[in-house]
Amino acid sequence: MNGWVEAMRFSTFFYTFKQGVKNIWRNKVFSLASIATMSACIFLFGLFYAIVVNFQTIVREVESGVAVTVFFEDGTSKEAMEQIGAQIDKRTEVSRKVFVSAEEAWEEFGKVYFSGAENMMEGFEEDNPLAESAHYEIYMNDVASQSTLVTYLQSLEGVREVRSSDIAANTLTDFNRLIGYVSAGIILILLCVAVFLISNTVTTGITVRREEIAIMKLIGATDYFVRSPFIVEGILIGLIGSAIPLVLLYFMYRRLIVYVGDRFIWLSNMLRFLPVNQVFSTLVPVALLLGVGIGFLGSRLTIRKHLKV
């Protein structure tokens, strides 16, 4: 039976768990500080996450309205156009494409410019002034890859012109990225602080228990057994420190949706919040995992440094 198997025996696991809880309890001030920092960390993470996913939904809605338009060279046959269409369909960045024939283009043009005077359009059916305006409207999955797509489309045979609105695409992408970077940066700093504090807590715990650890080693405790209460301590701090802000965020987010819906009805067109469950079904497991991971990492690093077994 090796040390790990030994440590996994139920009574031993229970004992280890109890010792981990005891560590936290004995070391209340440090533990509370760690839990508080952890909570702040996860709270901000959750906040940014909620903002980013909501914003991303808005961006995606806007994106789905941004189209690339492909015009054909004079005299391109229907078959050739269909072939180009097939090649467009193969591109992964394309979400859908719409073919607009010259006739449809003319009709659309008429609706806009001759509204109320449709009779003026008569007589053009056989001699469409927009005869060369058949085109594809291409909608994309991700505006960021627009320029790649445009380059590709321009290289296709039979394509006369590719129109796109670079500014809209680029601004949205850049803004999205900025939010991502800023939140990642802040969260990273906070995570470092959390790891540092957990590490301090565990160090104090090890110092307080130095004598006990020495006795354990003399009696024949394995490295796993000596270390695991401190790992449990770190994981528990991480777990508590992520559960508290999650509960808080959950109620805050719910209140916010109701509040904005009530007071700012005029905003509700622009600001459509994602439903609580959709946001939290991802946020809860990710935040808990993050908390547990940081707790584990914080104590693991400390043990490695201060608990030479």
Binding site: M1, E6, R9, S11, T12, Y15, E212, I215, L218, F225
Partner: peptide
């Protein structure tokens, strides 16, 4: 091993101090 200064765990009673040596090596309860 025993030492001059006993090296008992001050926060645990006599029973737990002895049981400790068994818990440490994963003895069944």
């Amino acid at each position: 091993v025993v030492f001059q200064d006993f090296r008992l765990l001050k926060d645990r009673n006599v029973y737990e101090n002895i049981a400790f040596a068994q818990r440490v090596i994963a003895t069944p309860s």
